[in-house]
Design a protein around this nucleic acid. Structure first.
Lengths: 118, 118
DNA sequence: TCAATTGTTCAATAACTTTTGAACTAAGGA
DNA sequence: TCCTTAGTTCAAAAGTTATTGAACAATTGA
């Protein structure tokens, strides 16, 4: 069982930008980048939304060519397609990730959705 | 008469990416970048859509902080907000523009919408 | 003043996106 | 085998975006 991914040359710039233009998906990409090398499964993003909703956003990222998902047992190990994105759009992913790092308005993995009173 | 623009720190990354994730708007940005220094008015983009539709897309770009529009007579002179975008998101605009340059799938100013037979 | 030029606004519609819960599949462990 | 875990699919609802044409406003030049 493998999931459908676009080939490197099928990755479209407007589509990548549109897919990244969503706070939840940008938060997923930021977290993937912060753990680069460590493949993550879907449930590690549950802070960002419901299981169903994450399935939707992760499919969008995969179909746009931003992430790769490898099926391992009942898990999907998700990684950034840094190699292909860098080849296709040099510097784009790095500048997007760098910009997300300081973005306090983005949702975050490991952060409560609602601020608990201090 | 001036038009509303976000201040530099009001420019939001997800919003900029979402706004750039549209082929018409990306084509506008590519054309602006190719003529950088030369302020353009709306009618110079008419190859990309109807007057009404361009007004809509140019407003989206302006409201996201991607472009600046200066009212001069009955015209609006449109420029890229390169300074503010570079300060906020270093390298992002350059990598997006570089990626648009080779993108033959994008609509283009000065190109016929339908290929005339050779 | 009148007409032309430039661009906006409005309302309608069509098309897409996001979110949800319930039902489902597939693998792995007891 | 049965249960649990991991994630998908489906249909519905809600919300958002893009596109259109008609009407409008403001400036400029004749």
């Amino acid at each position: 069982m493998t999931l459908p991914h676009p080939t490197a040359d099928q990755i479209s710039l407007p589509n990548v930008l549109a897919v990244l233009g969503d706070p939840t998906r940008l938060a997923i990409v930021r977290y993937l980048a912060s753990k680069e090398g460590v493949p993550l499964n879907c449930s590690q993003f549950l802070d960002l939304g419901s299981k169903t909703n994450l399935s939707y956003h992760l499919a969008k990222l995969r179909e746009a060519g931003v992430t790769r998902a490898e099926v391992v047992g009942t898990s999907r190990l998700i990684t950034l397609r840094r190699d292909d994105l860098d080849a296709r759009f040099p510097g784009l992913l790095d500048s997007v990730i760098a910009a997300t790092v300081n973005d306090t308005a983005l949702p975050a993995v490991g952060a409560p959705e609602i601020e608990i009173r201090a």
